[in-house]
């Protein structure tokens, strides 16, 4: 668990005070226990009067309320809180950012070997549509996951924020098929945007960026450094569904790539392999290939994840102020019900 900075879990009942000097005032809470003669009616002879259990209890309640009011105000001044502590948690389901390449090339049909790829609207064979269907099935089968959908062309834009609602996600996926492709493929900015989706979120399950792209993008060195840092900081795995053009060699082939597009893809692949976190590529060159890739993703990321969550300091000041309000209200009632004089 070195990844989580291995500090021991704090004691459950630990309390700390932001302003501990205020506790010096705590003895003031004993003041109501010192009786003051002005608060009492002097009577000539108590043995005359009936003993009253109710009266003694009301008296004690009033005294206790006074003690409580002072004590809780003093404690509230000291600003008590539970110090930050680590909680072991078991996360189920993953947080998946689907980073959907929306560039023009995604409009190409995915055709069998030897056929010429065409760009036809609404063709079920378009890479974009094939990927959308596969994603939609993935979302259906893994309802425990949280999804966020980002598309990118020349610039990334968020379609849905993290959500567990299937309707929202399915609508987002459907929306990815509406327009024609966008010009440009700025994968670097897309990844940075996808990473920033995780910023400020509690780590509650494995995090995956599911990149659906046919490649053909370059990432400059500065952006690479930002991506590497971000992936490591947010502990995000990267899965790339590489919608390969037919006949192109595999990314891992040892031959140095020759085609211009392929050079870029291999360069991306090699960069991704240098990332500090898990990276997997699923190469698909047919609709079936895409489905297989998605099915494999589905099998992964399914294990419950045990992790320590660092919970920030919790301030209890308001609790004590409320307590003081309640005690003061009781005290006011007590005072209102007290007979102050024998003279009618």
């Amino acid at each position: 668990m070195s990844l989580f900075g291995g500090s021991a879990p704090a004691l459950d009942l630990a309390l700390d005070f932001a302003q501990p000097w205020a506790l010096l005032l705590l003895p003031l809470a004993l003041l109501p226990l010192l009786r003051h003669r002005a608060e009492e009616l002097t009577f000539s002879s108590l043995p005359w009067l009936p003993q009253d259990r109710v009266g003694r209890w009301v008296e004690r309640v009033g005294r206790a309320a006074a003690v409580l009011a002072i004590a809780s105000i003093v404690l509230a001044l000291a600003e008590p809180g539970r110090p930050e502590w680590d909680v072991p948690r078991i996360g189920r389901g993953a947080e998946i950012v689907v980073l959907f390449d929306s560039s023009l090339s995604m409009d190409d049909e995915m055709v069998a070997k030897g056929q010429h790829p065409k760009r036809r609207r609404d063709s079920p064979l378009r890479k974009r549509n094939i990927a959308r269907e596969a994603l939609s099935r993935l979302v259906e089968r893994r309802p425990a996951d949280r999804y966020s959908l980002l598309m990118f062309g020349a610039a990334p834009f968020r379609v849905t924020p993290f959500s567990q609602s299937p309707e929202v996600i399915q609508a987002g996926i459907a929306a990815a098929g509406i327009s024609n492709g966008l010009p440009g493929t700025d994968l670097g900015r897309g990844l940075v945007a996808a990473i920033s989706q995780f910023d400020g979120r509690a780590y509650s399950g494995s995090r995956v960026i599911l990149l659906v792209s046919d490649g053909a993008a370059e990432i400059d060195d500065t952006t690479r450094a930002i991506i590497r840092d971000g992936m490591a900081r947010n502990r995000i795995a990267l899965d790339w569904i590489y919608l390969r053009s037919v006949n192109w060699p595999r990314l891992d082939s040892e031959k140095e790539p020759e085609a211009v597009g392929l050079i870029k893809d291999v360069a991306m692949h090699r960069f991704f392999k240098t990332l500090p976190t898990t990276y997997k590529v699923f190469e698909a060159e047919s609709p079936d290939g895409v489905n297989q890739a998605v099915a494999e993703i589905e099998r992964q990321q399914n294990l419950p994840l045990e992790y320590l969550e660092r919970v920030p300091r919790r301030d209890f000041t308001h609790v004590f102020y409320w307590l003081a309000i309640v005690a003061c209200t009781v005290l006011l009632g007590h005072r209102a019900l007290t007979v102050r004089s024998f003279a009618a």
Binding site: R37, E40, L41, T42, S44, R56, V58
Partner: peptide, 21 residues
Amino acid sequence: PVTNGLVSLRDAESAARSAIW
């Protein structure tokens, strides 16, 4: 006294305390 309520009492001689509702 005619009013209902809590009466905190102190004995004038013995300074003993009592309260009656």
